[in-house]
Design a protein around this nucleic acid. Structure first.
Lengths: 212, 212
DNA sequence: GGTTGTGAACAAATTCACAGCG
DNA sequence: CGCTGTGAATTTGTTCACAACC
């Protein structure tokens, strides 16, 4: 018997899970034990039907006439997102963006541990940023091997970004988030997600001119 | 005769236009006059059919058997995105993220001018960041009134983010980009786009655990 | 009564296949 | 012959409507 094929979760649903998680954590902080699809909908700006469909694919246990158990949902979504493994992340580049990320509290809250901060500039190596010490980029393979981080954030100047990505891939990193205005290339097995701020702005500008 | 109703551009297409623009500008730099849908596809990671469908809704002038005129496409997309108006942007918050954004060259290249950088902290006011001088946040309404920026980037700590957004709205800003881990509320007429880095990471983590 | 869960209808987006043109 | 342009088919995602249940 082969491994049970987990039902594939639609991409659109995956993209919304973190949004639900955020809302659910707020509910948990407010000590609400139960939450209805309608309430989750208004908290997230989605429709109640969409919420129910999404939670259904998680195999989540809702109670008719009552709602969903907040704790159970948080656990289920965390599990589905793979956060139970406590993924650790490494940040490459100790410039403004890298430092901002290193000091960002939101990661820990949501199951990510920042394992290391690297920079190629010897002048930056040794600097203390929050609880981290900037390490030389040459240490990358060793850190990845030891703490097994699978996600890296690339926050370096564009000209060296591809080189950094290549090093990350060589070191065994399998997921990369970057902020470049250019496309980066990675082998097929590596997940790459790029957030281009100018693109975000352009989308805003367009929506505005369309009055949509 | 009423104003010609511009055919509504699908949201999915709008989201890709900035990606095309980026690739096209690279082509222009390489002094390529023409580009085929196939080439654009491989540059952007999309399918050739998608590219052609998208360019078709722009009413763009392709030449059969040859390709598209790079310059014409750049102009058409810029026009469609509303970049011809040379939108200026203001950045609120002169912390790490704000400073990184203020120094980011990618904006100017793509039609955005950073008009001002604000901070509420008197200790930061007057600092020179690149070509900008940090201004007190009280100047916001005056700057918006004069230079007419319609897009603002919110790069402040979460606790004060909603307050900043309210001030921006009051000052007449109509599009806002933020980096908060929480939902912000704005009147319906204001466009708000939020980039939550932890969400991006979670999506990466999930794709990885799904091997999709 | 209120809410979940879900099949069916609907809408949007992508891909296919190929005609039309340079 | 290569590439664009586009109707048709397919896939994907959302909304509706309502039965099932607590």
């Amino acid at each position: 018997m082969r491994t049970m094929a987990a039902p594939p979760i639609p991409r659109s649903t995956v993209a919304r899970l973190p949004v639900y998680l955020r809302a659910l954590l707020d509910e948990a902080v407010a000590e609400n034990v139960l939450v209805s699809s309608g309430r989750l909908a208004s908290l997230t700006g989605l429709s109640a039907t969409t919420v129910r469909k999404d939670l259904a694919v998680l195999g989540s246990p809702g109670i008719r006439g009552v709602g969903y158990d907040v704790r159970a949902l948080v656990d289920q979504i965390s599990q589905t997102l793979g956060l139970h493994r406590g993924s650790s992340i490494v940040i490459v580049g100790a410039g403004h963006i890298g430092q901002a990320l290193a000091g960002y509290g939101g990661f820990a809250e949501r199951g990510f541990r920042v394992a290391a901060l690297f920079d190629a500039d010897p002048a930056k190596v040794g600097l203390e940023i929050g609880t981290l010490v900037v390490q030389p980029i040459e240490d990358l393979p060793a850190v990845v091997a030891v703490s097994g981080p699978t996600i890296a954030i690339v926050a370096v100047p564009t000209p060296v970004a591809q080189d950094v990505v290549d090093r990350l891939v060589a070191a065994g990193v399998t997921s990369i988030l970057s902020f470049q205005p250019t496309e980066l290339s990675v082998p097929g097995r590596v997940m790459l997600r790029n957030v281009d701020l100018a693109v975000e702005l352009q989308i805003l500008a367009c929506m505005q001119s369309q009055r949509s």
